[in-house]
Design a binder for these strands. Structure first.
Length: 289
DNA sequence: AAAGCCATACGTATGAATTG
DNA sequence: CAATTCATACGTATGGCTTT
């Protein structure tokens, strides 16, 4: 009877849990679906416990599955850290990352924690700026990589996934009857502003700008107070605000989360941070609500 | 070292169940 | 009914271990 857990199998377990299925997990870990099925069956046999039960045509983790999953994540993190510590001395240098505020608040902590643990010798410099500034800094060489939002067909960078935009307001907010829609938006040029106004104009909905600011922080008070609503990524909605129920206002388009490098062949440390970001985004997008 | 043997894991192909 | 998703069968490749 084998009493050592196989980390490769734990990796597929974590993937299966995060992505909610064997097929997608197989994709992630670079195996076929059948191999994943067998791996997890072997794992169940080794532990003498069922880890997943059927639910519809998918699988959901059992209690034992949840318990193991928590350990699996810690074991894998320690594994990656050990690898980097022993053979990772090659990874040093400096990486300059730029993101907009929304991303700094949400996906970034996870990615940075992971990266810093695995590559303690890399000096990380982060900048939170507006998107247009990020783009400019990337072009003029003062940033190595940026993670930001763009239109889905945008030519710059690589697409990491599409996210829904939503009208965001104070909880319970409703449009004032017979008046133009009060908006709080970032100063142009702003992707969300452009998308929101274009959507309203296309629907023939009147609006007026009641609050403008060059930074997200400047908008919050008017939104919290119920004076106005704004446009943000639905999943990035701050806890004290809420997406408006669908049907009240015309639906907004989706935008693409994109990762762009300054150089076509980035140095290893930059490449690696990009990898951490990709993973954090994938986890964030597939996390169950 | 090389050869032989065995267990194990993998991929392909296919089946069965479920869902919209 | 078509698409999706997990399960199973079978042939093959790989790696470890023993024997030569």
């Amino acid at each position: 009877m084998n009493d050592t857990l196989d980390l490769a199998i734990l990796r597929t377990l974590v993937a299966a849990e995060h992505l909610g299925g064997f097929s997608r997990a197989a994709d992630r870990v670079g195996r076929t679906q059948s191999a994943v099925s067998l791996q997890l069956r072997r794992l169940e046999a080794q532990l003498g416990r069922k880890l997943f039960v059927k639910s519809g045509r998918g699988l959901v983790p059992t209690e034992a599955g949840e318990v193991l999953l928590a350990y699996a994540q810690r074991l894998l993190a320690l594994n990656d850290e050990a690898l980097a510590a022993v053979r990772g001395q090659g990874l040093s240098g400096r990486v300059r990352l730029g993101v907009p505020q929304d991303i700094a608040d949400t996906v970034l902590p996870n990615a940075l924690a992971r990266f810093a643990r695995a590559h303690p010798d890399v000096v990380l410099e982060g900048r939170v700026e507006r998107q247009e500034t990020l783009n400019r800094m990337l072009r003029d060489g003062s940033l190595d990589l940026i993670l930001l939002f763009a239109e889905p067909q945008s030519p710059t960078g690589q697409d990491l996934g599409l996210v829904d935009l939503a009208w965001i307001g104070a909880p319970g907010w409703g449009p004032p009857p017979g008046q133009p829609l009060p908006l709080a938006l970032l100063d142009a040029p702003c992707l969300f502003r452009k998308a929101g106004l274009a959507t309203l104009d296309a629907a023939g909905q009147a609006w007026r700008l009641v609050f403008g600011s060059p930074s997200l922080g400047g908008l919050s008070p008017s939104i919290r107070a119920g004076l106005a609503i704004t446009v943000r990524v639905a999943r990035f909605c701050p806890p004290d605000l809420a997406p408006l129920p669908e049907g009240i206002l015309p639906p907004l388009p989706r935008v693409s989360l994109r990762l762009a490098f300054a150089e076509a062949a980035p140095p290893p440390a930059v490449e690696k941070l990009g990898e951490s970001l990709r993973q954090a985004v994938a986890e964030f997008l597939s996390a169950r609500l």
